[in-house]
Simulated scan of single mutants.
Amino acid sequence: MAPASSEPAARRLAASAPWDAEADDALVCLAVRDETHDVKTFVLAPKEPRLFAYAPGQFLTFSFEIGGETIHRCYTVSSAPTRPHAVSFTVKRVPGGPVSNWLHDTLKPGDTVRALGPMGEFSCFTHPAPKYLLLSGGSGVTPMMSMARSFHDLGEARDVAFVHSARSPADIVFRGELETMARLDPAFHFHAVCETDSPNETWAGPKGRLSLDTLRDAVPDFLEREVFVCGPKPYMDAVRAMLKDAGFDMARHHQESFDFGELPEAEQEAAAEAEKTLDAEAAPAGGVRIFRVEFAKTRRVLECPENETVLDAARKAGIRLPSSCAKGLCGTCKSKLTAGTVAMTHAGGIRQREIDAGMALLCCSKPTSDLVIER
């Protein structure tokens, strides 16, 4: 077999222009890597060599064509901006999850996906500190890995303690790399907490779920650190309560604002927040106009007041729509309007050319007429 040409790699390394999703949102899958038995990393780059710039901890919103339908999902970047020629995201297979299973079973090198971003404010770069504590549970490891890789590549010898909670030793994502980083950098400390043993390994470290005693043993000076937390909602809630009970200064506590692994719970949070916002809004003089909203594919119809978002009205009507941030940032609820107009105030989760083509983010769109939505 003839050796592979190094020309594509040389072209990518020679890139000088930044990647701009507004100009070209297509990313080609370069590689798929097995991290654990149910976690894969997908390495992407534009067709034409470009450089990625982002803060470690930020995310991309992806558009996937699955079964003839466009589905939007947000995934945190797991690679580091110190290696700008490609970008990676890491996904755990979720039983019954339409996107995670499609990615694991279908996406392969050479395939193309579309992406928007980077976005998000969850980053160590926005909160400079002499010492950090990174706490992650399950797939919440991805933004922490981007932060850890960045500090390691920059050679800053930054005092970083990384404590990851996993189901078993076989479920510790990036374990080999994290252990290597800890061996090479005396200022980087990695600790894993496992609920149970795996079939091929009896866990010698702390067992069970993360507790205050376990945290104190691993990181005695955790009260002095800037803390970043990411994981399933129950994990983040438990960590928040634990830190408060320990007397931690919660002004130095930061957690990921999206719960990608527990979407239904995230929707409940977003709905509660939306209801507070709606309660604070004053009805316009002359009363509130009510508009008819029809979902063309499912043939569901609801009424939506002009001072309420389509997403909130749908939730109240028992219609479940894809959503995550409920702030016009992530793009998960992006939908096609085939009739009608809306007033939309977004935070970057949609491009102008998509708006011109009739797309809207339902979480931040209030009707100004009757609507027909392609869902």
Score class of each variant (00 low, 15 high):
R240Y: 14
C230F: 07
M250G: 08
P220R: 06
V219A: 10
D237K: 08
H253M: 14
F222I: 07
H253P: 03
R240M: 13
L243G: 03
V239C: 01
G247R: 10
L243P: 01
V219H: 07
A251N: 12
A241V: 03
V239L: 09
F222Q: 00
E224H: 09
H253R: 12
A238D: 05
F222H: 00
G247P: 09
Y235M: 13
V229T: 00
M242K: 03
R216H: 11
R240H: 13
A218E: 00
E224G: 05
Y235V: 05
V239A: 01
D237G: 00
E226L: 07
C230Y: 03
L243R: 07
K233F: 07
A246D: 10
C230I: 01
Q255T: 03
R225A: 08
C230Q: 01
D237L: 08
D221H: 10
D249L: 07
K233D: 12
A241F: 06
G231S: 09
D245V: 04
P234D: 08
H253N: 06
D237E: 12
V229I: 04
E256H: 13
A251F: 04
Y235E: 08
V219S: 11
D245M: 11
A218C: 04
Y235N: 10
R240A: 13
G231R: 07
P232W: 15
G231D: 04
P232H: 15
G247Y: 10
C230A: 07
D245W: 00
Q255Y: 11
V227E: 07
M250C: 09
G247F: 13
P220W: 08
L243Y: 04
A238L: 06
P234A: 09
E256W: 01
D217L: 12
K244Q: 15
